[in-house]
Amino acid sequence: MGYKAKFRVWRGEGGEGGLEDFVVEVNEGEVVLDVIHRLQATQAPDLAVRWNCKAGKCGSCSMEINGKPRLGCMTRMSTFSEDETITVTPMRTFPVIKDLVTDVSFNYQKAREIPSFTPPDNVKPGEYRMQQIDVERSQEFRKCIECFMCNNVCHVIRDHEENKPAFAGPRFLMRIAELDMHPYDVADRKDSAQEEHGLGYCNITKCCTEVCPEHIKITDNALIPMKERVVDRKYDPLVWLGNKIFKRPGSSASK
């Protein structure tokens, strides 16, 4: 059974704008993105929204629904009551291009700053031999669909624009953890995670994990393990002494 829902949608360009009220039809089984599309089709043909797969796998339709970062295509209308006013706004952490579409180039910039997978010089492509248990930990992080909701919700940059140059955000700290845990990666990730990508800014309040649509345990499985690896390198004198005595060059993690 359909009903008329009350929507408030943020509309504007370049940051200037405000919330506009709409009353729009909702049918059984629909998600928020369906309703946004109906708004486009019936009342606001110039309403801008980024979307692609409508299946929760492309990460395009990230937005904030009733203040929470969500994928529009994965937020069922049945989770709201019929008399509820649903507020839809663009992601707050990134600049607005138009309406619900944000400029997420901050994330691409941060991605470029991370050195790519770096195998040992003496291992050629085709010679990698890894067991499943050695790689499955980092395979969890490969589920990321780059919706950037974790970076959007992280208060380090959401509430403090000035931290953006120093902080890569959970998505890319997770990328660093993924590479650091890789059996064949030899690049030094620990010092750079702390000094260049701002791991120390994370105070593990777990909002990144809460909003992840892929249910990746970003904090428990990537950020905290990475923090512990940094402790090995920078803050643990016993590990430092062990490395000296047993001549473990360069790395605190036993490869």
Partner: peptide
């Protein structure tokens, strides 16, 4: 040899954009 994943873009976006100007501390309703 460590490499980055891609080259840097040739230029910044033509127009610097701003965040959505929303004064409410949160729009959460729960």
């Amino acid at each position: 040899m460590t490499q980055t994943t891609a080259g840097r873009p040739t230029g910044e976006p033509a127009q610097r954009k701003q965040r959505a100007q929303i004064t409410a501390r949160t729009l959460r309703t729960d």
